[in-house]
């Protein structure tokens, strides 16, 4: 919907300016204070990198960061593969229980996270109790259960993203590939995958960010020794206020910005093809 005569009016433009200030103001404040010498006050007392150094020295933060990255990488890889396959299957084929599978994709959207979290906690606790009893395993909550949970809530987003891309896909391109001698696998790797890749990358990034961001479900599926960064941040917020959190936040924002720019660059739409 674009048309010079319908361009946003002055009132609307002013509102938008304020809205963006509202969105970015708090983050800007965090970033600024991460470089402030004063530990408690609001007043600016001088520039320092001391909080970043303190952060680096914090063994718990480093371990939490490592855990977070392990979980995010593993759950993203799994979600992307499972989710992309499902998108292709749901878009292309009819089979029993298709409707049910499709409906279950929306479960993470319509069910509050805390409910999913406790349900998984109860499930893992119960399942591990039985399995450990019956088979003598020593399974307990940890990075693996966090990863499983993260895949469960992020994989539908991958599927929905890839599917949106597949919906606009011209099936004749695949027919053309087959006509030119490519079997089904090579048709997928040489034609289908490259063309839906922006959707797959976007889905993977979504899964990665959801995993990085998640606190609630992680809280219920984490065990001793598997503290992730959000869990650590929460603990820090409950303890004394320290500008270390500002430093961590600033780093986090920087990483997210970089990742989004990268995603933007990778996912840029291909040049339009006529007809």
């Amino acid at each position: 919907m674009t048309d010079a005569r319908h361009a946003p009016g002055r009132g609307l433009r002013l509102y938008a300016l304020l809205a963006y200030a509202y969105l970015y103001g708090p983050i800007a404040i965090l970033v600024v204070y991460s470089f402030n010498q004063s530990k408690f006050g609001v007043a600016w007392t001088g520039f320092t990198l001391e909080w970043y150094a303190a952060l680096w020295d914090d063994r718990f933060v480093r371990e939490a960061a490592r855990n977070t990255l392990i979980v995010a990488a593993a759950s993203t890889a799994l979600s992307t593969v499972i989710g992309t396959a499902a998108a292709v299957g749901l878009q292309r084929y009819r089979f029993p229980a298709r409707r049910l599978t499709e409906a279950s994709l929306y479960v993470p959207v319509v069910i509050p996270e805390v409910v999913m979290g406790i349900a998984m906690l109860a499930f893992f606790a119960q399942a591990f109790a039985w399995l450990n009893d019956a088979l003598g395993f020593g399974w307990r909550l940890g990075l693996a259960t966090i990863t499983i949970a993260h895949v469960a809530f992020s994989v539908p987003f991958v599927t929905l993203t890839v599917r949106a891309r597949l919906a606009g896909f011209d099936r004749r391109l695949e027919e053309a590939a087959m006509d030119l001698g490519a079997d089904e696998w090579r048709t997928f790797t040489r034609v289908t995958l490259p063309l839906i890749l922006p959707g797959v990358v976007a889905g993977a990034l979504l899964a990665f960010t959801l995993s990085l961001d998640d606190y609630i479900i992680t809280l219920f599926t984490a065990g001793p020794g598997s503290t992730t960064l959000p869990l650590r941040v929460y603990a820090m917020l409950r303890q004394a206020v320290t500008p270390k959190v500002n430093a961590l936040s600033t780093l986090w924002v920087a990483v997210v910005f970089a990742a989004l720019l990268l995603a933007q660059w990778v996912g840029r739409p291909p040049r339009a093809v006529a007809a």
């Binding site: 004749r172 391109l173 053309a176 063309l195």
Partner: peptide, 16 residues
């Protein structure tokens, strides 16, 4: 992919 024929598609289906 195993037939000795090739096709020119309606609206071409060139790989973008």
């Amino acid at each position: 992919y195993q037939r000795p024929v090739n096709m020119v598609f309606q609206s071409y289906a060139l790989f973008p």
